[in-house]
């Protein structure tokens, strides 16, 4: 088991920095999700750790050893690419064994390891097929098998599930997490899907425009988002972040003292119907079975509420909405930072 330490890495292309002074650590045997919107520098960070790209500044340590200048093959890592990167002319077995052959592993041991991963991932019947003869989910499994068979202590994954359909994604999430735990791999998992990060990761590193917005456990990031951005990015539907003035009339609302102009963040699921609450005009309502999403305007700002079960709300109706004091997240309007 090896840990990973990223120390102040940056990657610039000309003027623009795709990754800007990023530092974090990944404890051995844990799964850390790199989460963020498209273009925020997740892939670049991962490629820097893999050695597929060189940082403009900073160091990378894997298992304590400085690997910053080492080629990818000498870093002791395996990687799963978004496009799987299977060799189209090689069979499933040859794809899985590619690295072992390159590293001159004994044929007997190769066969042994192939059998083990093939059984683990349900590929035993597919070993002679070419990648083009496999479904997306099967190709994904082959890519996974290729990463696992190397028995590297560190595994990097770049949006490995984004080409799969929703059902398969849920299955593979569980499968990857189970494998990671069972094999004790240290894993960095890149995704732009917050639900993937929430369900799989021990810690989430939320990135925005090349910088780390928040590095916390899923529960912390959901419960105490460090910025308004983090609040909106994690959780579905996203947190409502409205000017504090829009909610000024609610009794019991206590903004933190100070000279700042504030934003108030309220999660849709924390909102209740409350006769003493603020008036909100219904714009649209969506019944989802287990709950109902009601889109409203509250003090001029769009505001979404989520109620359990079915709630009768027609466009134009006025609902009275309230929430408990613990549900209020306060952010500074200028810096977006959390204030309470």
């Amino acid at each position: 088991m090896k840990d990973i330490a990223v120390e102040g890495i940056s990657r610039r292309w000309g003027e623009a920095a795709a990754v800007d002074d990023v530092s974090f650590t990944v404890a051995a045997g844990t799964l850390v999700a790199l989460l963020g919107p498209s273009g925020c520098g997740k892939s670049t960070t991962l490629r820097l750790i893999a050695g597929l790209d060189q940082p403009s500044a900073g160091r990378i340590r894997i298992g304590g050893a400085d690997v910053t200048g080492l080629p990818p093959a000498r870093r002791g890592i395996a990687m799963v690419f978004q496009s799987y990167a299977l060799f189209p002319h090689l069979s499933v077995a040859e794809n899985i064994l590619f690295g072992l052959k390159v590293r001159r592993v004994e044929p007997a041991e190769r066969a042994d390891r192939l059998r083990r991963v093939a059984d683990m991932l349900g590929l035993a019947a597919l070993l002679d097929r070419k990648p083009s003869q496999l479904s997306g989910g099967q190709q994904q499994r082959v890519a996974l098998a290729r990463a696992i068979v190397a028995e590297a202590a560190v595994c990097l994954m770049d949006e490995p599930l984004s080409n799969l359909d929703a059902q398969l994604r849920l299955e593979m999430r569980r499968e990857i997490r189970a494998l990671q735990t069972r094999l004790g791999m240290t894993m960095i998992y890149v995704t732009h899907d917050q639900s993937e990060a929430m369900t799989m990761a021990d810690r989430i590193i939320l990135m925005r425009a090349g910088r780390i917005e928040q590095n916390a456990t899923p529960a912390e990031i959901y419960g105490r988002p460090a910025t308004g951005f983090a609040g909106r990015f994690v959780g579905t539907p996203p947190m409502n972040v409205i000017p504090a003035a829009a909610a000024a009339g609610l009794p019991g609302l206590q903004p933190p003292a100070g000279p700042h102009t504030l934003l108030l963040g309220i999660r849709p699921e924390a909102v209740r119907l409350d006769p003493a609450g603020l008036p909100a005009e219904v714009v649209a309502a969506e019944y989802l079975g287990a709950d109902t999403l009601v889109e409203t305007r509250l003090g001029g700002s769009p505001f979404v509420a989520r109620f359990a079960g079915r709630v009768e709300a027609r466009t134009g109706d006025v609902l009275r909405l309230g929430w408990g004091p613990e549900a209020a997240h306060w952010f500074d309007t200028g810096t977006d930072r959390r204030m309470n």
């Binding site: 893999a50 690419f81 060799f87 189209p88 002319h89 590619f98 690295g99 390159v102």
Partner: peptide
């Protein structure tokens, strides 16, 4: 040939020659 194949091969420790012989030439 997608560049990601070269990256995958380099992660596996394939030399330039191995990559040519096992991947580029057959393709």
């Amino acid at each position: 040939i997608p560049p990601v194949l070269a990256e995958a091969a380099s992660l596996e420790g394939a030399s330039r020659w191995t990559f040519f012989r096992r991947v580029q030439f057959p393709l």
